[in-house]
Simulated assay, not measured.
Amino acid sequence: MTANPEPVIFGEVLFDCFEDRSVLGGAPFNVAWNLKGLGREPLFIGAVGEDELGAQVQQALSAWGMRPEGLQVDPDHPTGQVQVRLSGGEPQYEILADQAYDHVDVTRALEGLPRGGILYHGSLALRELAARHGLETLRDHMGARVFMDVNLRAPWWEREVVHDLMRRATWVKLNQDELSALAPEPADDPEVQARLTLACFDLEAIIVTRASEGAMVLTRDGAVHAMHAPKVEGLKDTVGAGDAFSAVTLLGLLEGWPWDVILHRAAGFAARVCTLHGATTEDAGFYALAHDAWNSPSGEKARG
């Protein structure tokens, strides 16, 4: 493990409400949960309401052993909820407005934060101007490198706002549809789209997930890493697969893995998450299987 400070994860925690159940989630919270399961100690900064769902979040965070100091309780706004409907295994989201995660008081979280390191954020929790100002305060205080995980959820995004966030990032991860929506110029070839975006926003790397087509990483030095999607045995749903991919990518950046190793391990872990109902699990063994394989003395350590 490298000497990098533990990552700071900023953004939404919410409940994905399916027809038959509610599952704790939110892309940043999922990333923090996965990182904890994989052996890191991330600090999640977000907010819940002073309600039953908020109490459930606090209980889950404590039971999983995550650091509690970044989770705020907002008495004026409800814990976030998203209505999820599955169509052919693919999730469709109805995201509610004015949730607790829109109102994080970043100034309460500054004391004791690491300097440098990596700051992760998505885009959904930055739909309000005040939240974007909060992120700017957090970013400036830490002086951290920024991993931006794009999550475009209509109608909660504007192209110019997302572009501004990308300009301040070190690495940007997004899916193929998001790349097409955000690329500075139209192009038929996804690699061309990615290269144009990488250059336009002066990124160190751009990470593109492409569903069944796999994933690719383009870096500032001109390298391209790509792989086909691994086969999923026992598919349940794809909720949280992108968050799982992001968590392992972030882990790889923290621990200094080469990009081809990051890509291989992130894709493999995301495929395993597709065998879950929802984005995460409380089964520590699920994470230990990946963690132990990656740290074994065999060839798995080198490749994933």
Rank of each mutant, 00 (worst) to 15 (best):
N4K: 09
L253E: 09
A131T: 01
L235F: 14
A215P: 11
L129S: 10
W33M: 08
G242D: 07
V106D: 10
H264P: 03
G304A: 10
W294C: 02
E12Y: 04
E41F: 14
K301V: 02
D105N: 14
E128F: 03
P68G: 00
G278N: 04
A302L: 15
R67C: 12
P42F: 03
E160T: 14
E19L: 03
A125N: 09
A100P: 09
C17W: 01
G222Y: 09
I45Y: 07
G143M: 09
A27N: 13
L110Y: 09
A154C: 08
L61I: 14
P42D: 04
Q72E: 12
G39W: 03
A109P: 11
G278V: 03
L218W: 04
Q59L: 13
G134L: 03
H103R: 12
T209W: 02
V82C: 09
A271N: 00
D51S: 02
E136S: 11
A284Q: 15
G304C: 05
K301Y: 11
G116F: 07
E233L: 02
L138T: 01
V57P: 00
Q83M: 06
D51I: 01
R85L: 09
E191D: 11
A226Q: 15
G285K: 08
R195S: 08
Y93N: 01
G80E: 08
D177I: 00
A267G: 15
R159H: 13
A271L: 00
S180F: 04
E160P: 01
T2H: 14
D102E: 12
D260H: 14
V208H: 04
H133Q: 14
G234D: 06
A290T: 06
P190R: 02
L251I: 07
E6P: 07
H103M: 04
Q56F: 02
L174T: 12
D74F: 03
D189S: 13
R168P: 00
T249L: 10
D20R: 13
L129I: 04
S298I: 06
Q56E: 15
D74N: 15
G89L: 00
D140R: 14
M142W: 05
D16I: 02
A194C: 08
H228I: 02
L113K: 04
A267Q: 10
N30K: 04
H77M: 05
D98Q: 15
R145D: 13
D189K: 12
R67M: 13
A229K: 01
A125E: 11
V273P: 01
T137P: 11
E213F: 02
